[in-house]
């Protein structure tokens, strides 16, 4: 196995890694960096459990070659909020009982974050679209959709106050 260097930003910190050529970002995050918040559900890009944010957009880390992350800005669930704090989406998923087994939760939250970053006032259909690549087998999606809408509402409130 050949190894190549990759420099990227991971959860706001500079990361320099040697990765095996042809290996995926998913493998780098889990097997090399111990960031287990990114889940492996299918290795085929069909379940969304491995979703991470690259340069502001959701990406499937199982289909992303690690060495192509050179110079990119990668966010995983571990980087969503400062230690000890919760992002409004995390709080809304908790309050809304939107997680059961929890395996899809990291991908769901990151997919939702990409939506809310672009569109702070989404419709239900836009929320549905945002998580359309993420499989959940436990919840029936309804609590997840509700939690994302709740989080969006909560995130808009302070902005309105300022305005």
């Amino acid at each position: 196995m050949t190894k190549v260097p990759v420099e990227f930003t991971l959860n706001t910190r500079e990361q320099n890694e040697f990765v095996e050529t042809g290996s995926t970002l998913l493998s780098a995050l889990r097997d090399r960096l111990g960031l287990y918040g990114t889940k492996a559900g299918c290795h085929q890009g069909t379940c969304g459990a491995c979703t991470v944010i690259i340069d502001g957009e959701p990406h499937l880390s199982c289909l992303t070659l690690a060495e192509r992350c050179q110079g990119k800005d990668v966010t995983t669930l571990e980087g969503l909020a400062p230690a000890g704090a919760l992002h409004p989406l995390q709080q809304a998923f908790m309050d809304g009982f939107a997680a059961q087994c929890g395996f899809c939760t990291p991908g769901m939250i990151l997919a939702a974050k990409c939506l809310l970053d672009r569109n702070p006032d989404p419709t239900r259909d836009e929320v549905v679209d945002a998580i359309s690549g993420n499989i959940c087998r436990c919840t029936g999606y309804e609590p997840i959709i509700a939690a994302i809408l709740t989080a969006a509402q909560g995130m808009r409130k302070p902005a309105r106050k300022r305005a």
Binding site: R30, D31, G34, L35, Y36, G37, T38, K39, A40, T76, L77, E78, L86, L89, Q90, Q91, F93, M94, F97, A99, G102, F103, T105, P106, I109
Partner: peptide, 21 residues
């Protein structure tokens, strides 16, 4: 009562069997 596992779920800290090296 709040689920005792949910904070781990939403922060990615819940340890599944494969989350080990």
């Amino acid at each position: 009562r709040q689920r005792s596992d949910v904070l781990g779920h939403v922060t990615g800290k819940t340890q599944y069997y494969a989350d080990r090296q």
